[in-house]
Design a protein around this nucleic acid. Structure first.
Lengths: 152, 152
DNA sequence: AGTCACGCAACTTATATAGTTACATGAAGC
DNA sequence: GCTTCATGTAACTATATAAGTTGCGTGACT
């Protein structure tokens, strides 16, 4: 397990959805596309719905749809909604049971580096929308890999 | 478990060692200082020894010592020797069993962001030596927290 | 010889996350 | 109104990763 992550699923799926925004996709469809389980898709998509990026509909013809044009959804929006940081925050639990100035100094330095790194990532993602990625896809893959937008 | 990490242990311990470089510390001592196990210390320190940052000696009076002055050991040296990246590389395993242009495009974007972020961290760490941190410690904690360099 | 400390391999335990099952809710079609 | 399809959610299982632990070997000092 754990061969993938929430963010990779979200980016992959929303990238596909940006290709044909009108059509709703079921969780099953998306799960098959990404090689995972429908419940996982719902779990990952729930915060995106709450963030106003996705809409979900029940019943016949239901499924998931982009809540606004792909050009108005940046990767940063998705990243922020997921809330799963790249940086392993586990790296610095404070000293167990006793304060230590040296450890504190180290933690400060590392934290500063992490904040900087996060800012870089945020900037990077903010500069790219789903539409940008869809465009790249359109330019390079008029070939055969994903004819229109079919799963698998 | 996993309340700490290799890097936090290394930085914490080497920070202390930089305070009094002449004295060798046993793995037990360091483990007590960081609230972990001596074997874990040896495991984490092994690559630092191979990288020429630490020296280890067996027998009476043995233990660990800095291989060179604290001013010549940057945090980047330690970070590189540990080889444990901050950025969760798990985030992007490729598509399971089938290529997908969209996923590839997303992966490229994310990878580029990660490379940038890594560079920021590397630069940040390269600019700080163990001696710098020891100095910070010396300036702020002439008080009581760690009288000389005692564990706990 | 005896003790101390690292070196290393193997095993155990803890945790996080993906995967799965099960059931409830609501919407469309008949 | 009943069935079908789809999401919503909680609970459970499986697995991968990393820390913690044990045991034994080796070298060095007394």
């Amino acid at each position: 397990m754990k061969r993938s992550s929430k963010l990779s699923l979200a980016l992959h799926a929303l990238g596909h959805m940006a290709q044909e925004p009108a059509r709703a996709r079921t969780s099953e469809e998306i799960a098959a596309m990404h090689g995972t389980h429908a419940v996982v898709v719902r779990r990952v998509f729930a915060p995106l719905r709450e963030a106003g990026i996705l809409l979900s509909e029940k019943g016949h013809g239901g499924g998931w749809r982009l809540a606004r044009p792909a050009a108005e959804i940046s990767l940063a929006d998705i990243y922020a909604a997921i809330g799963e940081p790249f940086l392993t925050a586990t790296a610095f639990a404070p000293a167990p049971g006793h304060p230590c100035a040296i450890e504190a100094a180290m933690t400060e330095t590392v934290s500063a580096a992490m904040v900087e790194a996060e800012a870089v990532i945020a900037r990077h993602f903010a500069a790219r929308t789903l539409a940008d990625v869809a465009k790249v896809w359109g330019e390079r893959a008029k070939s055969a890999s994903h004819p229109t937008d079919s799963p698998l």
